[in-house]
Simulated scan of single mutants.
Amino acid sequence: MMMLTNEKQSRWRPFQSCLAAAMLAAVASPAVAATVEGITEPLHDLTISASVPGTIARTLVKEGDFMESGAAILELEKRQEELEVERRRIISESKAELNAAAAQVEMLKIDLEATRKLFETSKSVSKEQLLKKELEYKQAVAEHDKLVLAEAREKIEYDMALEQLRKRIITAPQSGYVVELMRKAGEDCKAQEPLVRLVDTRQCYFVANVEARAGAALQTGQKIKLELPSGRQTLTVTGEVTFVSPVVDPASGLLKIKILFENPQGKIRPGVAGLMHLPEAP
């Protein structure tokens, strides 16, 4: 066995002391959590369009306005649709023909019953007269039933006219800020053409791509600390993991994750980059 001389041992002692101190420091000091860069984006970012073509009659909002769900944003020209709704309403609500048919059925029913009674008791009316009354009654019932069906059809046509009118008013499908108006009053638009961009910034995602090994420690529902810029300062917020991709990108070896965080006052503007603190490995 090779033995070190006293001179060589004396030379190694300082190095051995430094190595031991370093090892003790590594054991004693806590590990620093790793961070990963990512980008913020709003939870809801919608581009709204009309389902029908037309000419924009009025813009009811301006960029920067906050809209509640269901509020009108803009209107297409709708005079023709309004007239059609009124016409269908009058037809649908008119009960004159149906009431007259119902009265006719009731009158012929009474007449038929009286004729049948005379035929059965005194034979003062002939069989042919009774059959004629029965035929008149059945025809009146058939006419009444036809008018009932016509009324139901008119009600459906009225509802369809109302739906066409509603399509001329573009409303917010959810709450959010109007960040872009893509058409002005007087301009034509096609069906499904983008008209308004609506963004809700009260809840946001932090989206990042992490190494697969680090991502293995993440799971939905887990709380994660985020550092996000707000003007000249950096805010520390806590978010919740809502998505961990079930697949790893084969080109980069990275795993996509999403962390949802609250942003009620809009201090953090979606689109800015930030950092997430990865949990320490157990």
Results as ranks from 00 to 15, higher is better:
Glu193Ser: 08
Met160Asp: 15
Ala150Pro: 05
Gln164Glu: 15
Arg153Pro: 03
Leu135Lys: 15
Leu131Ile: 09
Pro173Ala: 08
Val141Asn: 02
Gln192Leu: 09
Glu136Met: 07
Arg153Asn: 14
Pro194Val: 05
Ile170Thr: 03
Lys133Tyr: 04
Gln129His: 08
Ile170Val: 13
Thr171Glu: 04
Ile169Trp: 00
Val105Pro: 01
Leu195Ser: 03
Asn209Phe: 03
His144Leu: 11
Glu93Gln: 13
Glu151Val: 06
Ala101Glu: 07
Ala172Phe: 01
Phe119Cys: 09
Ala152Trp: 14
Glu120Arg: 15
Ser124Thr: 15
Ile156Lys: 01
Pro194Ile: 05
Glu97Ser: 13
Asp111Leu: 08
Thr121Ser: 14
Ser175Tyr: 03
Ile170Arg: 01
Glu93Trp: 04
Arg197Val: 08
Ile156Thr: 11
Val148Thr: 10
Val178Gly: 00
Val125Pro: 00
Leu198Cys: 11
Ala191Phe: 00
Lys109Ala: 15
Gln203Glu: 15
Asp159Asn: 06
Met182Glu: 12
Lys132Cys: 03
Met160Thr: 10
Glu120Tyr: 08
Leu162Ala: 08
Val207Trp: 02
Pro173Thr: 03
Glu134Tyr: 03
Glu113Asp: 15
Arg183Tyr: 06
Glu106His: 04
Ala96Gln: 08
Val148Pro: 05
Asn99Ile: 05
Lys167Gln: 15
Leu131Ala: 15
Ala100Leu: 06
Ala96Trp: 00
Lys133Trp: 02
Ser94His: 07
Leu130Val: 07
Lys146Thr: 12
Ala161Thr: 02
Glu128Trp: 10
Lys117Ala: 14
Leu108Thr: 07
Arg166Met: 09
Ala96Tyr: 00
Pro194Asp: 09
Phe206Lys: 01
Tyr137Ile: 05
Lys123Pro: 02
Leu108Lys: 07
Cys189Thr: 10
Phe206Cys: 02
Gln203Asp: 12
Val148Leu: 14
Ser122Arg: 11
Ala96Met: 06
Asp111Cys: 06
Gly186Ile: 00
Arg166Gln: 09
Arg168Leu: 03
Leu112Met: 12
Cys189Glu: 00
Leu165Trp: 01
Arg202Met: 10
Leu131Met: 10
Met160Cys: 08
Lys127Tyr: 05
Pro194Tyr: 00
Leu198Thr: 04
Thr201Asp: 09
Val199Lys: 00
Phe119Gln: 07
Pro173Gly: 06
Ser94Arg: 14
Thr115Asn: 10
Ser175Gln: 09
Asp200Phe: 01
Leu98Thr: 08
Ala114Ile: 07
Val207Met: 11
Gln139Val: 10
Arg183Val: 06
Thr201Pro: 02
Tyr137Thr: 06
Arg197Ser: 08
Tyr158Phe: 11
Ser94Lys: 14
Gln203Met: 09
Arg166Pro: 04
Gln104Leu: 09
Lys132Pro: 02
Val125Gly: 03
Ser124Cys: 07
Ala191Met: 02
Ala142Leu: 05
Lys190Thr: 04
Cys189Val: 10
Leu149Thr: 09
Lys167Arg: 08
Ala150Lys: 13
Asp145Ser: 13
Gln164Ala: 15
Arg116Cys: 05
Ala114Asn: 13
Thr201Gly: 02
Lys95Val: 06
Val105Gln: 04
Ala161Asp: 06
Leu162Glu: 12
Lys127Ala: 11
Arg202Thr: 14
Met160Ile: 11
Val207Asn: 10
Thr201Met: 07
Glu93Arg: 15
Leu131Thr: 11
Leu181Ser: 05
Arg183Pro: 05
Glu128Met: 12
Val178Leu: 05
Tyr177Pro: 00
Glu163His: 01
Ala191Gly: 12
Asp111Met: 07
Ala101Asp: 09
Leu112Asp: 10
